[in-house]
Amino acid sequence: MRRTSPSCPTPSPLPPSPPQRAGPQATQALRPRDAATLVIVDRSAPTPRVLMGRRHPGQVFLPDTFVFPGGRVEPADRALARRLALPPREAERLSYAVHGRPTDARAAALALAAIRETFEETGFVLGTPASGPPSAAPGAWLDFMRAGHHPRLDGLTFFARAITPPGRTRRYDTRFFLTDAAAVTHCPGNLDGELLDIDWFTLDEARRLNLPSITHHVLEDVAKLLARPAKRLAARDVPFYRHRYGRFERTLLRPPEQNGR
């Protein structure tokens, strides 16, 4: 990688996960599952860069494309979310137009999924150093804790949401979070193998990669945010990408009292 960060204790070795193979075609519409993605921005140079990796060619979902690290919410994220909380402003914005009942724990689970998946796929940790031995952690979080950190939720900005179109082999309701590279630590170790060629790319370099369509859109949202001063990254309105009635649309998620304006 072209940017180095402080190192962490190496977690206990685990065998890499085998690539996912395509299974039988689903015969019914898939319901989108909660998922989250983390966009890490390095603003230490005159031209900002973002961390991306190429999905393994054997993956069922978006194979051989460059993406930001992320994945679906797991039970371990929901369990840990009962002990942690997002800043109220981020939790509130995550509650806009959700399916089911919005809760602070559900919002925290989304943020935790983004942090955990980023660690598993890239080795980057968004967390605070732990004092003493690792505390009890839900299964999927054990290696993160063994790396000597607790997850940190106050450094995240929720800035976009997208739902995978119908008819795909996987469907996700993905929330995109942004954080600064200064808040992360690199813990090289046993990655899960889902992302290859992990590196930092300027926005122009990223635009030339083999990107999924939604990643192109989100990358432009990142560009708009980075055009602002560093202390004003958060936006009140959040872009929401989905297909309705067979057409792709981009709307803005707003507080309920602003809907319809």
Score class of each variant (00 low, 15 high):
V125N: 06
R250D: 00
F144P: 06
A79V: 11
V67L: 09
H149I: 01
V238F: 01
R254Q: 15
R101Y: 03
C187W: 05
R261A: 11
T122M: 08
P63D: 09
Y172G: 00
T128S: 10
D173M: 08
A182Y: 01
A160V: 05
P15R: 10
D180H: 14
R242T: 04
R106V: 02
P212K: 04
A26N: 12
P6F: 03
P48Q: 11
E90Q: 15
P6Q: 08
D173R: 13
D104K: 11
T47I: 12
T65Q: 15
G193A: 08
T128H: 01
A160K: 02
V222D: 08
R175I: 00
G139F: 04
L30A: 11
E74N: 04
Q25P: 00
G132T: 05
P133F: 03
R55N: 04
R116C: 08
L233Y: 15
E92V: 07
A114H: 11
L86T: 09
P57K: 01
S44C: 07
P188F: 02
W200D: 08
A147L: 05
R72W: 05
T65K: 10
T169R: 15
L86M: 12
A223D: 11
A130F: 00
S131I: 08
A223L: 03
T65C: 11
R152Q: 14
S135K: 13
Y96M: 06
S44Q: 14
R33E: 15
L219G: 11
A181L: 10
L209V: 10
R228Q: 14
A29W: 01
P188Y: 02
R171I: 03
A76E: 12
L153M: 04
H186E: 15
A113I: 02
G246H: 12
R228I: 02
F144Y: 14
A230S: 14
P129T: 06
R31C: 02
L219F: 10
G123Q: 07
F201G: 01
S7L: 14
E90M: 13
R3H: 12
Q25F: 00
L203M: 06
G132Q: 11
D173Y: 05
R93C: 04
L156T: 04
P138I: 04
T185K: 04
S12T: 15
T103K: 04
D77C: 11
P133D: 10
N259H: 07
A91Y: 09
T47R: 13
R228N: 13
R208L: 13
R152C: 09
R236K: 05
H217A: 14
R72M: 09
L203G: 08
R116L: 15
V50C: 12
A234T: 11
D64G: 05
I163T: 15
R208C: 04
A22V: 05
A97V: 06
R3K: 07
R152P: 03
R207G: 08
T174R: 14
L110N: 12
E121W: 01
M1A: 14
A147Q: 07
Q28S: 13
R232M: 08
F201S: 01
P32H: 09
R3A: 10
I115A: 13
P166R: 12
A206S: 07
R207V: 00
T37K: 02
R175N: 06
R168F: 12
A227R: 14
I40P: 03
